[in-house]
Design a protein around this nucleic acid. Structure first.
Length: 477
RNA sequence: CGGGGUGUAGCGCAGUCGGCUAGCGCGCUGCGUUUGGGACGCAGAGGUCGGCGGUUCGAGUCCGCCCACCCCGACCA
């Protein structure tokens, strides 16, 4: 094993793969395309879950659990949904040693089974809205996989809601998009742009799909969360109906929305550097690591006493004391930097003598990120510093993103931008064929439309037609 | 599924013209010395050389078939 990671400059993809393995976030499973999420990675996911779940509860949602196996026939009821998902379904054909009457698919998403249950549960406008979320794993048989970003099986949450009116369902779709955007920025320090997807990029069966788009360290885009307005498509396919106040039978309006373990990939590729992970304090499994430094046993007892005192002061934070014997402090520094711990506190004989500790910020490498503080008062100084780090990560990522988005007005500069510089932002007159041609020629896809309603009017960079719409284009994961 | 590549210790690799006991680095175990930016010494453990078949006195090495994985392209949270 090499001591150092490949640099992001050298080989971004290899940097990512090795980082995930070495930081012990995940490992390859025996089955191609599957991964094992290791305890450190899962702890990060748990913090993501908590932050999201609190937001779901705060917006009136409740959790439930629906089955992993879905009758195959359910998948065929919504036309676009079948077409979108059939190529990537895992199908169970045998159970208990017998061939099944009807094959079962392993859920790639749960619209069909949840829709079936909603049809049963919803009778009246008084039953609406239904606002249910589930935390689950799903399976999609992808051709090319990459740890966290695209695996055959992944973990996510999927919210499924049913409403009496189109307006309410649209509001829900938008509300959850904003919940995701707020989550990504506030918790992950990932500056995302929310917006609507194009016709060709939307979810199979949706009327409209919205997503939060993030820029990774190599300037590629990553769709980091999605919210779908499903109209009455699934309600009609699954017969989700209710009697309104006027005793009229009506179809419901439904939505669905999800964030997956892919978000871990977003964190890695947004903040990570050539030393390793850089985790945002609010989500980091370990927010502060304390490295004791001592030579002789006499020093050790004094140092460990100081360590305990500091640890007690920081009891409200996620703190780890690295008590491993036989490793040098230098090794431990590198190790925790690889793992992305936001703040390191070093306590040695000199500190004990001076009543101080040395602090080292993960977001600012080297000497510039070091400071020395008195032990007294760490209980307020450290949380404040963590918040500073959190803010700095968002600011840095935002500055990086903004300096890699270029407004273009012609196809030549568009091609150059998406090939070498980042995202292109341009006037765009909607045209499915043009969009496909651009993808074919440049590998860049339409990520989202600009959501600013006061754009005015301009000329499409590709077709030359007049338009009142702008869009972001980029190569993406 | 097309194009390229790799399978030798947990990981990364070397192994010449086929040759006798299969090696190196990291990691791992034990003991000792170390410890403020990836410590060092000594002693150890660890291998059906991806699988099957063939050629040969002799195969990690040559031949054939198969398998797996990785990278690049067509689908996707």
């Amino acid at each position: 094993m090499e001591k150092k990671l490949p640099t992001r400059q050298e080989n971004f993809s290899e940097w990512y793969n090795q980082l995930v393995l070495r930081a012990e976030l995940a490992d390859y499973a025996p089955v191609r395309g599957c991964m094992v999420v290791r305890p450190y990675g899962w702890a990060l996911w748990e913090n993501i879950q908590k932050a999201l779940d609190d937001r779901f509860k705060a917006t009136g949602h409740v959790n439930a659990a629906f089955p992993l196996l879905i009758p195959q026939s359910f998948m065929t009821k919504e036309k676009e949904h079948v077409e979108g998902f059939s190529p990537e379904l895992a199908v169970v054909t045998h159970g208990g040693g017998e061939k099944l009457e009807e094959p079962l698919v392993v859920r790639p998403t749960s619209e069909t089974i949840i829709g079936t249950m909603y049809a049963k549960w919803i009778q009246s406008y008084r039953d609406l809205p239904v606002l249910i979320n589930q935390w689950a794993n799903v399976v999609r048989w992808e051709m090319r996989t990459k740890l966290f970003l695209r695996t055959l099986e992944f973990y996510w949450q999927e919210g499924h809601t049913a409403h009496a009116t189109e307006q309410e369902a649209l509001e829900e779709t938008e509300r959850m998009l904003q919940v995701y955007a707020d989550f990504a920025r506030t918790e992950g320090a990932v500056p995302v742009i929310p917006g609507r997807k194009s016709e060709s990029e939307k979810f199979a069966g949706a009327v409209n799909t919205y997503s939060i788009e993030a820029m990774m360290g190599d300037t590629k885009a990553l769709q980091s969360g999605t919210s779908h307005f499903l109209g009455q498509n699934f309600a009609k396919a699954f017969d989700i109906k209710f009697l309104d106040e006027g005793n009229q039978l009506q179809y419901c309006w439904t939505t669905s929305w999800g964030v997956s373990t892919r978000f871990i990939g977003a964190i890695i590729m947004t903040h990570g550097d050539d030393q390793g992970l850089v985790l945002p304090p609010r989500l980091a499994p370990i927010q502060v690591v304390i490295v004791p430094i001592y030579r002789k046993n006499e020093e050790k007892s004094a140092v460990m006493e100081a360590v305990s005192a500091v640890q007690a002061q920081l009891k409200d934070l996620r703190v780890k004391v690295d008590e491993r014997e036989g490793l040098t402090p230098g090794f431990k520094f590198n190790d925790w930097e690889l793992k992305g711990v936001p703040l390191r506190i070093e306590i040695g004989p000199k500190d004990v003598q001076n009543g101080t500790v040395a602090l080292s910020r993960r977001d600012i490498p080297g000497r510039d990120g070091k400071s020395f503080l008195p032990m007294a008062g760490l209980d307020s100084a450290v949380p404040a510093l963590l918040q500073t780090i959190q803010d700095n990560l968002l600011a840095k990522a935002t500055a990086f993103r903004d300096s890699h988005i270029f407004e273009v007005t012609d196809y030549e500069s568009f091609k150059q931008v998406v090939a070498e510089q980042g995202w292109a932002y341009a006037w765009w007159s909607d045209d499915r064929e043009n969009e496909a041609r651009i993808k074919e020629e440049t590998k860049a896809t339409l990520r989202i439309y600009a959501s600013d309603p006061n754009l005015g009017e301009g000329v499409c960079f590709y077709s030359g037609r007049k338009t009142n719409q702008k869009a972001y284009f980029a190569r993406s994961y």
